[in-house]
Simulated scan of single mutants.
Amino acid sequence: MDARVANWRVDRPETAKPCATCGELLGRGYPSCEGCAEVVDRPLRADWTDLPEQDPERVADAAPGEYSWTCVDWALRQLTCEGCRGELAAGAPTCVGCAAADSARWEVQAPTTNEHALRTAAVVLRAPSWRRESVVSTWRLVLPFVLTGAVVPVAAMRQVRIYVLAGRYEELAELEALPLALPRLPWVTVTAG
């Protein structure tokens, strides 16, 4: 497996499969489904539990690079924003405190492409009101594959988003493997080359 693909210390699903709790592909029900949340949050919790001192405020306020991205993200989830009273960095989309915390989160790099995708998907799905519905739906569709260690190329993400915008989410949700065999859009014509 490509070194840019996986660096998790915890077991991951080998294939995209239905969640025993919600019935969707594992990850699609995140964060409201307990089964999906357990798998998505597992790598973050693993690093957090290894910290000698589990102080969310200290980790969230630390200099970039002092803690791994997993610990920073887990710390933010445990803190309440003083401004909007929501989860810090995922509260009200107009909250300046949440926006500042979310911006600071990205100063700590995820070391692999797959981890960056996991982080992005989790952030988008935890604060869906911050993004367009098509972006949220796109991450919801690809998260089950990211959980298996797959790296979804930017071009494929763009293509999935186009199909979501075209109202084809349900068709894509039925697909159970990568690459996503996207159904043909009616306005796309194939020309002989």
Rank of each mutant, 00 (worst) to 15 (best):
G193C: 12
R105D: 12
L143G: 02
A181C: 04
A122R: 13
S137C: 01
A127N: 08
S129K: 03
R168Q: 13
W48C: 10
A62V: 13
E14A: 14
P52W: 14
S103I: 00
P13C: 00
L172R: 11
R42D: 05
A122Y: 06
V123S: 07
G27N: 03
A110R: 12
A192T: 15
R12T: 09
Y67C: 05
P52F: 11
L143I: 00
P18W: 01
A99N: 06
L185H: 06
P153W: 06
R77Y: 06
G83Y: 04
V59F: 03
E174K: 09
V135W: 04
L172N: 11
R58F: 01
T80A: 01
V136K: 03
L182M: 15
P153E: 15
E87Y: 01
R105E: 09
W8V: 10
N114Y: 06
V96M: 11
V152M: 08
A89Y: 03
E170Q: 07
W8E: 12
R28Y: 05
S134E: 15
R45F: 05
D41W: 00
L125E: 07
R158W: 03
W69R: 00
V123P: 04
W139Q: 14
A3W: 01
S103R: 05
P18G: 04
W187Q: 11
A99C: 04
A177H: 09
V136C: 12
Q54D: 15
R45Q: 14
R131I: 04
R158L: 10
S134F: 03
A46H: 02
L165Y: 13
E133K: 08
A155W: 05
L25D: 02
M157W: 12
K17Y: 01
R140K: 13
G65A: 04
G65Q: 05
V40G: 11
P186F: 03
E53D: 09
V136N: 06
A155E: 10
W106N: 02
L147T: 01
R105A: 11
L118Q: 06
T21Y: 12
Q109N: 06
K17L: 12
V160D: 07
S68C: 01
C33A: 10
P153Q: 13
D102E: 15
E87M: 07
R131K: 02
A121P: 05
C36F: 13
E34D: 09
P52K: 14
T80D: 06
R85H: 08
G83F: 05
R4I: 14
E34R: 13
Q54N: 08
V40L: 15
A63P: 02
K17P: 02
D73Y: 06
D47I: 00
D55I: 02
W139Y: 13
N7R: 08
P128E: 14
A173V: 13
V152C: 15
L118D: 10
L125N: 09
A155V: 14
T113H: 07
T70E: 14
